[in-house]
Design a protein around this nucleic acid. Structure first.
Lengths: 331, 331
DNA sequence: CTGAAAGCGCTAACAG
DNA sequence: CTGTTAGCGCTTTCAG
C-alpha cells in the first residue's frame, strides 16, 4: 500500500480510500490506484484493518456434533448465507459437552468474532455464559436448543409439536404401546418428551415409565436403548425416537431381533436427515427444515450485527412437518 | 494491559512478558501481573498480537462437501488435532466447484491463515493456484485428492488399490459382469476407475464401456446412474461404486426395480462412512480411515508450520481395508 | 530482570 | 478531493 502511494506520488490515505471506493475520491485517481494495486498483486491485510475497525468479518458457529447430519445441514445454511456477504464462519464442535462449549465460545470471542450462532449443549441455563456475551455486546443467536429461562434470539423447531406429531401419528397407525427413546436433557430433548407425553395423555393412554428409555443422540446409543426395550416382558409396538440417528440404530436392533418394522414395531425419528430415505427401512420422520434454520439464524444474526442498537430478542419457531415413509406405515 | 501496568506501577513491557511467561521475568512480578489480569478479566487481543507476530493460529480447511460424511469425518480429525494445539479451523465448502475453491483459498489467505488443508476439486492441475501458495510461503497439505503433476504434501488413500480391492472382491464373490459407477474426474475418481480396470484385466475380463457409468458423488446421482445400468439389455451382476453415498443410491435403485442385493446384484462402495452399516442392505465398502487422514494431515501441516525451512513434500498413503457386509456377501 | 523506543498495516477524524 | 496526524493493542529489539 505504501508502495502504491510512493509509485503514484499520492498519500497513503488516498490509496486507502481509493481501494475501499470511499466516496470522496476522484474517479481518475481511483482507477490509477486500482490499476497499480493489480500490478503489484496487492492484498489488503485484514488483520491490520480489523485492529482499527474492530470488525473481523468472522462469525462463530458452535454445534454439538458436525458428524450429525442435522447440524451439517444447519452449517451449510449458515455458511451459505454468510459467504454471500463476505463473512467467514468458524465452526466449533462441542461434542455435546457443556464445558467444551464454553471453552469454544471463549476462544471464538478471543478471536473477536463479530457474532455467534450456538446450538447449546447446556443442560441448565448456565446464564452467566450468555449474560457474559450480552455484557460484552457480542450479538448471538441460539439455534435448535433454547436453554430455559434465557431471553435471547432463537431459531428452532417446535419441539413439543414434533413430539406430539410423531406420537399421534403412531397412534393413528394403530400402535398402543408407544415407547420413546429420549434425547439428552437439553431443551430439544425435553420438549420432544413433553410432546410425546401430551399426545398419549390426549388419547387417554398412560405412559409407562418403562417405555421411556434414554437413547441419547447417536445410532449406537439408539441401538443399545432399543435392545433394552426389546428385552421387556411386553415390548412396545411403536417407538418415537429423539432423532434420526437414534431411530436408525433402533431399526437395526429391531431387525436383528427378528421382528419386523413397521409390522411388529413402527418407528418414527426426527430431523429428516439426508440419508433417512436410504436406511434399512426408509425412516418416517419429522422434518425440521434444517437448512432453513441455518439460513434464518444467519439472517437474524446479520441484522443484529448491522444494527447499532440492541435488537429485542426474537424467537423464530419453524413448524414441524411429518414425513411418512415405510418405517411407520401400517395401513 | 495498560491498566494492569498502571495499577502495578510497572511498564507495559513487563506485563506483556509476564503474561506470556517469558523467561526473563521474576516469578514474583509474574504472579502479581497474572493476579491482576484475572481480576480485571483481561483478554489478550489476538488481532493486535497477530499483526506483529504474523501468525494467526488459524488454519483453513477446504473440502468439496461438508454434508458428505467422509469429509465430515476428515474435518473432525483435523479440528481435533488443531484444537488440542490452540489453533482454530476455518472450514470452507467448495461444493465441488474448482472456481469456488480458488475463491475460498483466496479468502483464507486474505485472512492470513497459518496453513491450509485442501481436498481439491480441481480437475486439471491448475498449477498456478498451488504454485502461488508456494511462492507466498503458505504451508499447505493436500488430502484425498492429489492433482496430477503436483509435488506437494499429501495424505490420502491408495485409490488404485481401493478400486482393485473392491473389484477383486466382487470377482471372488462370483460376479462376472461388473460395472463401475465412476466418480468425478478428480484423481480419486480416476484412480479408482484405474484400479477397477486393472482388476478386471488381471482376471482376463474385458470391461465393457457400457458398464462404466458416471455416478458422480451423491446418492441422487448414484440412484440415477444405477437406473441407467438396470435398463441395459444385460444388466451387471456386481457394481463397484465410487463412494458410499453413490452406493446407497444404487442399492435403492436396485431394490426398487424388484431385484435383490446381493443375490442379483452385489454392490460395494468406498469410504466406510458412518451410516454404511444402517443402509437398506448393510453396505460392503472399502475403508479409508477418514478420521486418520484428517489427523495425519493436521500433524503434517503442524510440522510444516513449525519448521522454518521448507519441508520436502511428503506423501502419506493409507492402505485401504475391505469391509464386507451384506451388500456383497454371496457365499 | 526491567523498560524505552519503534513499528506491524491500516483507518478515523479532521484540516487543507 | 487530498493529505496530516494520531493511534488500534501488542511485540521485538536493545539498552539499562
Amino acid at each position: 500500500m505504501k508502495d502504491i502511494a510512493l509509485d503514484l506520488g499520492v498519500s497513503l490515505m488516498t490509496v486507502s480510500k481509493a481501494l475501499r471506493s470511499h466516496s470522496d475520491i476522484s474517479e481518475k485517481t481511483r482507477q490509477r490506484v486500482l490499476k497499480r494495486a493489480q500490478e503489484l498483486d496487492y492484498r489488503p491485510n485484514w488483520i491490520a484493518r480489523s485492529l482499527v475497525t474492530r470488525r473481523t468479518h468472522l462469525v462463530g458457529l458452535v454445534i454439538p456434533d458436525l458428524m450429525h447430519s442435522f447440524f451439517a445441514e444447519v452449517s451449510k445454511g449458515v455458511t451459505r448465507k454468510f459467504e454471500a456477504r463476505a463473512y467467514q464462519v468458524v465452526i466449533s464442535n462441542s461434542e455435546e459437552d457443556p464445558d467444551a462449549e464454553e471453552r469454544q465460545i471463549e476462544l471464538l470471542l478471543a478471536r473477536s468474532v463479530d457474532g455467534l450462532i450456538v446450538a447449546s449443549a447446556q443442560h441448565s441455563a448456565r446464564a452467566p455464559l450468555f449474560h457474559n456475551l450480552d455484557r460484552r455486546g457480542v450479538p448471538y443467536v441460539l439455534i435448535d436448543r433454547l436453554p430455559p429461562g434465557l431471553d435471547a434470539h432463537y431459531v428452532g423447531g417446535k419441539d413439543d409439536e414434533i413430539g406430539a406429531l410423531a406420537t399421534s401419528h403412531l397412534l393413528d397407525q394403530g400402535c398402543r404401546r408407544i415407547a420413546h427413546l429420549r434425547g439428552p436433557s437439553v431443551p430439544t430433548g425435553l420438549g420432544r418428551l413433553r410432546g410425546y407425553r401430551r399426545a398419549l395423555a390426549r388419547h387417554g393412554i398412560e405412559a409407562s415409565p418403562d417405555y421411556v428409555a434414554s437413547g441419547l443422540h447417536s445410532d449406537n446409543t439408539g441401538y443399545e436403548a432399543m435392545r433394552r426395550l426389546l428385552a421387556l416382558d411386553t415390548p412396545p409396538d411403536g417407538v418415537f425416537c429423539y432423532n434420526d440417528p437414534v431411530a436408525a440404530g433402533a431399526i437395526k436392533a429391531v431387525l436383528e431381533s427378528g421382528l419386523r418394522v413397521p409390522e411388529d414395531i413402527a418407528i418414527v425419528g426426527a430431523g429428516n436427515v439426508h440419508y433417512s430415505d436410504l436406511l434399512r427401512v426408509p425412516l418416517s420422520t419429522v422434518d425440521q427444515s434444517s437448512t432453513l434454520i441455518g439460513e434464518m439464524a444467519a439472517d437474524l444474526l446479520m441484522q443484529c450485527m448491522e444494527s447499532k442498537t440492541k435488537v429485542p430478542p426474537r424467537k423464530i419457531l419453524i413448524p414441524p412437518r411429518l414425513v411418512v415413509r415405510d418405517s411407520s406405515r401400517r395401513m
